[in-house]
Computed example of a mutant assay.
Amino acid sequence: MAYDFQVVIDTGDPHPLADWWADALGWKVERQEEAFIREMIEKGYAGEDETTVHNGALVWKSGAAIRHPDGLERAPRVLFQLVPEPKRVKNRVHLDIRVGAGKIDEEAARLTAKGAKELHRGRQGPNWWVTLADPEGNEFCLS
């Protein structure tokens, strides 16, 4: 039996990090329905303290998600989940973003200009990659 999955990234500030990753990947941030959020508050299922305003819209404070423009059939959803503690050690799992050997330097420059930090460059035979960290320090590779 095969299962679907989503990737979850812990973060101290889900909405700006989701925006950053959506831009980095060319994906879309999932829209959160303000009417649904207000209905959940009115019915007592949630409190105002569980919401925040991001880019002028009421959203759930606990998370934000992005998805490939072609939908979940193309790639799994990525959820950015609010956690109280900051990142302290190296990721045990990371994303490898395949941009093609001819675009690695260009994409690394674009993402560092938007707040990523280059950590190192690696090579294995004819293949090479750049390891970066997003604005919260989560490692990922461009290959």
Rank of each mutant, 00 (worst) to 15 (best):
68 H>D: 14
96 D>Q: 02
132 L>H: 07
117 K>A: 15
122 G>N: 11
33 E>R: 09
138 N>E: 05
5 F>T: 00
104 I>R: 08
15 H>N: 09
8 V>S: 12
110 R>G: 02
107 E>C: 04
91 N>M: 11
46 A>Q: 12
29 V>P: 03
50 E>V: 04
133 A>I: 01
107 E>I: 07
59 V>H: 06
44 G>R: 05
88 R>E: 14
41 I>E: 13
124 Q>M: 11
89 V>D: 13
35 A>P: 00
13 D>E: 14
29 V>W: 02
69 P>L: 03
19 D>K: 13
39 E>Q: 14
134 D>G: 05
40 M>P: 00
87 K>G: 05
48 E>Y: 02
9 I>C: 10
37 I>G: 07
43 K>F: 12
18 A>K: 05
90 K>D: 10
61 K>N: 02
45 Y>R: 14
11 T>V: 10
59 V>R: 14
3 Y>G: 01
12 G>L: 14
30 E>K: 06
77 R>Y: 08
5 F>A: 03
15 H>A: 11
65 A>N: 13
13 D>F: 03
11 T>D: 07
19 D>R: 15
63 G>D: 02
118 E>N: 02
41 I>D: 08
136 E>D: 13
112 T>S: 08
59 V>G: 05
55 N>H: 15
3 Y>E: 10
141 C>Y: 01
140 F>H: 01
36 F>L: 15
100 G>P: 10
96 D>H: 08
82 L>M: 13
131 T>H: 05
104 I>E: 07
29 V>T: 13
78 V>I: 15
133 A>V: 07
96 D>V: 10
102 G>K: 15
138 N>Y: 12
4 D>C: 00
